[in-house]
Write a protein that binds this DNA or RNA. Structure first.
Lengths: 207, 207
DNA sequence: TCACATTGACACATCAGTGTCTCATTTTCA
DNA sequence: TGAAAATGAGACACTGATGTGTCAATGTGA
């Protein structure tokens, strides 16, 4: 099998040429197809992904030696996209509350990736790339939101995170099934989240 | 293959002897194992289910001709259990709000079944048994809750249902991973749900 | 134009899961 | 106890997905 240096570099995740080139484009198409297809059904065969990417199964195997290496690549790609978008969304916010809202709108908008990443909790169990997927950013923002008072401080942060993601996920699903428009889904998701985890109003103390 | 009348009756869903008998017990063990195993990983092979049920793969195939028929049975069983528990939970409640809370505590408690049923939205797409899975009860309760004022009436019922299930699911997951105790998970889930979809407080009108 | 990179179309071998079947053994129950 | 029921063990064929390889055709850039 012919395997130019560039590919080997790519396989190692070094990505010499991030933007142009035939191989980069083909590779990108395959990874994107994998994310989209596996968001729908993680058991989808490689042939389905090749078809969606409009390449032959041979070509797919040239870029990714086996199923696992494509999973790794898709996982890495999904995280990178989400990380970048998240960073962009958060910058320029003036409060933790704003950050949470802005971030949620991004996550809902990239529903495909979100579903791919979080549809099945143990989908990526034992995957090397998955360990670092424990987001560092969200817990930190939530802590600040608790200090700010935008989020109740008598609730476990892990629960807040769980609710956060599951509401994003619900919104993404609603969009995917045409139940709600993009805008409406994002709005109602933000509203539901903040009310759900809001600090206990002083008017009904612990009652 | 030997196949007494009783089995054929069972296969047709007529269930002549619902409570005792060797075959009933074996059958039940297999279906339960299927739900538990498939809640973890829907791609799990039949051999894994047979192993968990402590029967041979031969026996499993005697009860369920093919994978699909076991899926059907598991689906039916899951729905029946949930339906019965739900009905019991709802009876004796004095308001839609109480019903929603009581129902949520049941769903969280039967997390395995909940995860099995709702982990993957299109897991059962095209399944004959799945059509009726569109619960009749929940939409009706939510409508009443909206009339009562316990749930905002400017929110799509489909969204309320989605949030309801996803919060149950999050709680079930938190229990499954030992993040929260059973009781705490149920409490915080109920609280989060009702605040999340509460009617807009008059103090901040549409702002 | 020419060398090389890239691709598609096949042909395979392999493997795991599925479904069928037989036969010996154990369990159940009248 | 003895017949019927139920099970386990294992052999077998079949299928879909995977992974490897070859070869011809096409694309690309100096």
């Amino acid at each position: 099998m012919l395997l130019p240096r560039r590919v080997i570099a790519n396989l190692l995740g070094v990505t010499t040429e991030p933007e142009s080139g035939v191989r980069t484009r083909t590779r990108q198409a395959i990874v994107s197809a994998a994310i989209a297809e596996w968001a729908r059904d993680f058991a989808a065969p490689l042939s389905a992904i090749a078809e969606r990417a409009e390449v032959s199964r041979s070509t797919l195997h040239r870029y990714f030696v086996d199923r696992q290496s494509l999973i790794d690549a898709a996982l890495r790609e999904a995280q990178v996209v989400l990380d970048n978008q998240s960073a962009a969304a958060v910058s320029g916010c003036n409060s933790a509350r704003e950050e949470l809202e802005s971030l949620m709108r991004v996550l809902v908008d990239f529903g495909d990736i979100l579903i791919f990443l979080f549809a099945d909790p143990n989908r990526f169990a034992g995957n090397a790339e998955w360990i670092e997927a424990e987001d560092e950013m969200l817990p930190e923002i939530i802590r600040r939101a608790q200090v700010e008072g935008a989020v109740a401080d008598d609730v476990e942060p892990s629960w807040v995170i769980g609710v956060y993601y599951s509401i994003c996920y619900t919104a993404a699903s609603a969009i995917a099934t045409d139940e709600l428009s993009r805008l409406r889904a994002a709005d109602i998701a933000v509203r539901t989240f903040f009310r759900g985890v809001a600090a206990t109003p002083a008017t009904e103390p612990g009652h």
